[in-house]
């Protein structure tokens, strides 16, 4: 089984988001980048399934410029066998999906795993697009993934419940909790990661279809109105008469 795990390089979850003064770009200064938290589920589950099968390979793929390599190496340290970086700034979800689809096709991967969505652009798009480009099913978002031979059984989260879906390889799935316990690199992993192959390839395909023109921050709160605990019930009156939400 050949697994392709797509990882996105995103600002750490504790990042306070700011933009350049013209609001045109995300301000990267001092920001630490991590593997997108949901992609860690995809990576760990691929490694677990490979280990359980006793054979197979796990390749990590990132579409990004050279500054994403520390996180690609981290994925190798966690247990991926090799890596590919498509050397381009990720222009939009469509552009990223084109790159992933091209690599998946060329490498004849059986299982293409991604995260549920990126925590920076929150697209929830790339997995569906890749599935459609390759003409194969996409199961998103998946909370559980088990494999038996070429058949996968997944639990897909829907609003208010879940669906059990069975698909054959090749397929795309986007992963989220509680699929597995994401692994962290150990010392041996970090050592071996240095020498694992990381191939850099140029981008292909058509240009992006969307363009970000400006960013904005949510409006600030006016300040909190405190109600004494002794007369907590007064809060309910305020919610009805002042805030008018109940």
């Amino acid at each position: 089984m050949k697994f392709l795990v797509c990882i996105s390089n995103v600002p750490d979850t504790t990042t306070k988001i700011t933009f350049t003064p013209d609001n045109k770009e995300f301000n990267k200064a001092g920001v630490q980048f991590v593997i997108n938290p949901w992609d860690e589920y995809a990576l760990t589950r691929a490694i677990e399934l490979k280990e359980a099968a006793g054979s197979g390979t796990v390749t990590v793929l990132n579409v990004g410029e050279a500054d994403t390599e520390p996180n690609i190496r981290k994925a190798l340290a966690i247990g991926a066998d090799d890596a590919i970086r498509v050397n381009a700034a990720p222009q939009d979800a469509y552009f990223v999906a084109e790159q992933i689809a091209a690599i998946a096709k060329e490498g004849a991967y059986d299982v293409i795993l991604m995260g549920k969505e990126s925590i920076d652009y929150n697209g929830f798009q790339v997995h569906g697009m890749v599935g459609e480009m390759l003409g194969i099913p996409t199961v998103a978002p998946a909370m559980k993934l088990d494999m038996s031979g070429n058949t996968a059984t997944l639990e897909r989260e829907i609003e208010g419940g879940k669906e059990i879906v069975t698909v054959n390889t090749p397929f795309v799935a986007s992963c989220q909790q509680p699929m597995c316990e994401p692994r962290i690199p150990n010392m041996r992993g970090i050592m071996t990661a240095r020498t694992k192959p990381l191939k850099v390839v140029p981008a292909v395909g058509e240009p992006a279809r969307t363009q970000v023109t400006e960013f904005a921050l949510p409006p600030k709160k006016q300040g909190v109105k405190l109600i004494p605990a002794e007369t907590a019930g007064d809060l309910i009156k305020l919610l009805r008469n002042e805030a008018k939400v109940i």
Binding site: G128, M129, T138, A140, E157, I158, E159
Partner: peptide
């Protein structure tokens, strides 16, 4: 709707219909 149905179908549709897509 940007739901687990709407967004999942939207991304497939965007490729099939050659449409630009914005979620959320």
């Amino acid at each position: 709707a940007n739901s687990n149905i709407g967004a999942a179908v939207g991304s497939r549709l965007s490729v099939r219909l050659k449409a630009s897509l914005a979620t959320n």
